[in-house]
Amino acid sequence: MSDTTQLPAFIAALDRASEWFGRSLAWLIIIMMLIQFAIVLLRYIFSVNSIFMQELVMYMHASVFMLAAAYTFRHDGHVRVDIFYRGMTPRRQAMVNIVGIITLLMPVMAFVIASSLGYVANSWRIMETSSDYGGIPAVFALKTLIPLFAALMIVQGIIEVVRNGYVFTGRIPPSVGDDNHLEERV
């Protein structure tokens, strides 16, 4: 799927941006691991604890799975019940994806945005801070991940509709040696 050259220029650019963004997010994983490890050491050796660091790990954790949902979708990482799907022709698979994106993904993500805007705006209005002493005073930013998650999914959904449309009409070959980690293992 990493080959974007045959897609319309605008879509291809979006797709590359999405790829770059997802790869950047992945680094948060190792940073959060190191911070969490430091928390353990600090507590075990120095008997100190930082609520700020604890919350920092949580912020990174939430950022990864909310913002990388679209990146994972791009790499077909969201699990499918593929008992029939895997036996379908590439054209039929593309059809399932197009119909699924339009009737399932798009409404859900639109609804996530619609239902969360007020919720997030209220948090910004009061510049909501942590409910714990010493916590990170940016709850409003954390909550903003919700509509952001949905917006990124919608953008990726548009890209994938175009890509699957191209596959369906035979303009690009179905992805075979995709750069997905799942294949590399075998």
Binding site: R43, V48, N49, Y133, G134
Partner: peptide, 16 residues
Amino acid sequence: GLGGEVMSRMGVAIVN
């Protein structure tokens, strides 16, 4: 809460 903040000023490692 407030009690935890008081304790942390007394040298306690307050854990969440």
